[in-house]
Design a protein around this nucleic acid. Structure first.
Length: 434
RNA sequence: UCCUCAGUAGCUCAAUGGUAGAGCAUCCGGCUGUUAACCGGAGGGUUCCAGGUUCGAGUCCUGGCUGAGGAGCCA
């Protein structure tokens, strides 16, 4: 029995007989020759079936295969210039595991399709070359982010997904019935991260977050993944440096290990190769000036709109860090600047090519009195924040952190139009299935 | 929530208010090197839904549904 081989490894088996297990991607035929294209999740290979060289039932079985039928083929691997991929399988035997019924053929043909149709068939769309490439890059980005933080002495501390009360203010949360009480799906692990940082020094959480905002744009999902580092004794400068190192590490890793996938996605690699530190840093004041010069109607004191982020990020050839926003547009727990208390010690990182915000964070309020006052000002339920205030009662220290949105990073690295392709099963305003 | 656009075969689309069509997919046939193969043939329709105008509506009007793009919203 020949060895079962993954398609990505076939070059090591040239001249040998192997078994490939996979799905039929396409079938071309020319008289007494069949060219089944078989994919197995690791790659794609062209088989060639010569009528005179195989049993009649093998030839007939392959000839009547339909797209995405599952099969096991046996054959000899051969270098072949005419075959896509450079290697070909001279088929000697084929076993059909399940034939897709012709009365109900595989819906995603190798032709054009509309986005609604593709989204409705997301469970099948994932099989396409392009989607597989995106999944590969996503995996690499997640692994790189974790490898980087692990190598820097961070401890992964998981934060809860079910949270009591509105733990970050009044913004829209998904409510769930928790044994008769109200609970909410988390929109950030950050508050819990602060507790963890006081326990282990450097921590991060990595998990799904949920926002019930009715945002209908190319950069919003209602369920998305964030990696959120938090560091005790860190100031704004420290986490700006951390963010810069993290992002450049991630991009470098993807460039090193996922070139094939980026090629499939037709990504302009030079754009990614630019992304070496140092990244430019500008303050909110300067950002507003730049935007106004470009004709934006933004006024000092307002947050950037999606268009503003795009304009700003298009002005740089690598990610840009924007710091010192007005405190009024940022969350209650942001530390104020000492010299200009109306500014928050915060940072957003905007990805280039118009991709916009991929990181948001800053230095946290460490002072008990000030934090308690902010909670009151924001009309948050004090009771629910007593544990959070405890962090300022018992050995409070300066600390800072940020969150990096995985899907936005994937969209940028892959050069995608919309974040809906960056996550296997996107959850959006009007999309909960499949 | 608002604005704009769209909805016709399984898919992508065409059809001046006058006989609903093409390519792909499926099935049958042809081709010994195909490259989203090609060539020939066949089957396949509640034109999103409900009303209305008209001799006649896929096409025009009203309402609704669904989706897309954008805005708002969005540490």
């Amino acid at each position: 029995m020949p060895p079962i081989v993954e398609i990505r490894d076939v070059s090591q088996y040239a001249g040998q007989e192997v078994v490939i297990q996979g799905w039929l991607y396409n079938l071309r035929e020319s008289g007494k020759l069949l060219f089944p294209l078989v994919r197995d999740g690791t790659g794609i290979i062209q088989g060639v079936v010569v009528k005179a060289a195989v049993a009649p039932e093998v030839f007939e079985a392959v000839r009547h295969l339909t797209q995405e039928s599952s099969l096991r083929v046996t054959g000899r691997v051969r270098a072949e210039k005419r075959a896509p991929g450079g290697y070909e399988l001279e088929v000697t035997a084929a076993e059909v595991i399940q034939r897709v019924p012709p009365e109900r053929p595989y819906p995603i043909t190798p032709k054009e399709h509309g986005i609604e149709f593709l989204m409705d068939h997301r469970h099948l769309w994932l099989r396409s070359m392009r989607q597989r490439a995106i999944l590969g890059v996503r995996h690499e980005i997640i692994k790189a982010a974790r490898d980087f933080l692990d190598s820097q002495g961070f401890t992964l501390v998981d934060t809860p997904i079910l949270t009591p009360a509105a733990c970050e203010g009044t913004t829209t949360l998904f409510e769930v019935n928790y044994f008769g009480d109200k609970a909410y799906l988390t929109q950030s692990g950050q508050l819990y991260n602060e507790a963890a940082a006081m326990a282990v020094g450097k921590t991060y959480c990595f998990g799904p977050t949920f926002r019930a905002e009715k945002s209908k744009t190319r950069r919003h999902l209602t369920e998305f993944w964030m990696v959120e580092p938090e560091v005790a004794f860190a100031h704004l400068d420290d986490i700006c440096a951390l963010a810069e190192q993290l992002v450049s590490f991630v991009v470098e890793r993807v460039l090193a290990k996922r070139r094939e996938e980026l090629k499939t996605l037709e990504r302009d690699l030079s754009k990614l190769e630019n992304c070496r530190p140092p990244f430019p840093r500008i303050r909110y004041d300067e950002a507003v000036n730049r935007l106004q010069q470009k004709g934006s109607e933004i006024r000092w004191g307002n947050d950037f709109g999606g268009t503003d982020e795009t304009i700003l990020s298009e002005q740089f050839d690598r990610p840009v860090l924007v710091t010192h926003y007005p405190g009024s547009v940022k969350a209650f727990y942001m530390a104020p600047d000492r010299e200009r208390p109306e500014l928050a010690l915060c940072v957003d990182m905007l990805a280039p090519e118009g991709y916009g915000e991929i990181i948001g964070g800053g230095e946290r309020l460490a002072d008990f009195e000030l934090l308690a006052r902010r909670i009151e000002e924001h009309q948050l339920p004090r009771q629910a924040f007593e544990w959070y205030l405890d962090l300022r009662r018992y050995g409070s220290v300066p600390h800072a952190g940020f969150g990096m949105g995985i899907e936005r990073v994937v969209a940028w690295v892959c050069g995608l139009e919309h974040v809906r392709e960056t996550i296997p099963f996107p959850r959006m305003l009007y999309r909960l299935t499949p």
